[in-house]
């Protein structure tokens, strides 16, 4: 088990290094940043001052090592537009995005697990149809549209929930649901089909033949096996939340990383974009690491094959 975890942590660090390098290469291959940040007619001097300020006058390998060194010390440079350290911006905005992602995941799981399981157990029943319709809607509506529709219904027409911004717990409901809905769609289908496979298996028949009540057969013997593919999917889904948050945070004026990503793209604030990409990438890798370890906890067959 420890060997497996150690190996996976090593893989994760390798992944982080790869992302950092990719960001470094990309930021230098799509044009001269110093050119971008200086006004078009400001002349050679301004460009060179900017280049010196960004460290672009040094040889590439030196820039690369400096970049990695700063990264290890969590120094991502300063925002070009307002001079605030990128790390500070990220630290301020990360909690809002992560709590929103968490709320969305809770929504997605809380809906898709029971709906998927019941849909598989009671095939073609009313609950199965409700699950199918919810999944169909979630999958076919883009979040920027469903978000606006939810605002119109719940905030404008019925005045039940705040339309935008981050405040009390009520303010989490609409953006969290919007972000979670699309994800829940795929998850319901996955839970349902994976549960159906497991319900047809011999060990479930065996559990029934032991005289176990149906709730134990499904909750203990079937569900744990059915969750394995769902867990893998959840790790991918959290990546999708990162993408989704860029859109949903705009719709709900949510003060998270997604919003800063959009703002910094508009302002061409390169260090901030780099920071956002690195944070999203690292988060994705960390989630994968966590899920892989969880996988080994749930499925005993995994521990021995790193």
């Amino acid at each position: 088990m420890l060997k497996y975890i150690g190996f996976r942590i090593f893989q994760a660090l390798l992944g982080l290094w790869f992302i950092a390098t990719l960001v470094f290469i990309l930021s230098r291959s799509i044009g001269d940043p110093a050119e971008v940040f200086t006004a078009r007619n400001s002349g050679v001097d301004a460009r060179e001052i900017m280049a010196a300020k960004l460290g672009l006058d040094r040889p590439v390998h030196e820039q690369y090592l400096k970049f990695l060194g700063q990264l290890v010390r969590l120094d991502l440079g300063d925002s070009v537009s307002n001079g605030i350290p990128v790390t500070q911006i990220l630290v301020e905005r990360m909690p809002a995005t992560f709590t929103l992602g968490l709320v969305a995941l809770i929504f997605a799981l809380a809906l898709s697990l029971p709906l998927g399981v019941l849909g598989a157990v009671y095939r073609d029943s009313a609950i199965d149809w409700i699950a199918k319709v919810l999944a169909f809607l979630g999958q076919s509506m883009p979040p920027f549209w469903s978000g606006i529709m939810l605002i119109i219904l719940f905030a404008v027409v019925w005045e039940m929930l705040p339309p935008a911004g981050k405040g009390g717990w009520q303010s989490y409901i609409l953006p969290g649901f919007t972000l979670g809905w699309g994800v829940m769609a795929g998850m319901v289908r996955l839970v349902r089909s994976s549960m159906m496979d497991v319900l047809d298996s011999d060990y479930v028949a065996m559990a029934r033949a032991k005289g176990l009540p149906e709730a134990v057969v499904i909750g203990k013997h079937a569900l744990r096996n059915a969750l394995l593919p769902v867990l893998t999917y959840s790790s991918l889904v959290l990546g999708a939340f990162m993408n989704g948050s860029v859109v949903v945070e705009q719709v709900f004026a949510w003060p998270g990383i997604g919003t800063s990503a959009v703002q910094s793209v508009v302002r061409r604030d390169f260090p901030v974009i780099q920071g956002v990409v690195i944070v999203f990438g690292s988060f994705f890798i960390l989630i994968n690491l966590f899920v892989d370890i969880l996988y080994a906890v749930i499925d005993p067959r995994i521990k021995y094959t790193p």
């Binding site: 060990y203 028949a205 065996m206 005289g211 744990r224 005993p300």
Partner: peptide
């Protein structure tokens, strides 16, 4: 109360009749 107590079954395939987890 009968299943697994007064009557038990051994199924065809031992590879699949035990729960892997």
């Amino acid at each position: 109360a009968y299943r697994g107590h007064r009557m038990a079954i051994i199924m065809q395939d031992p590879q699949t009749s035990l729960n892997p987890v």
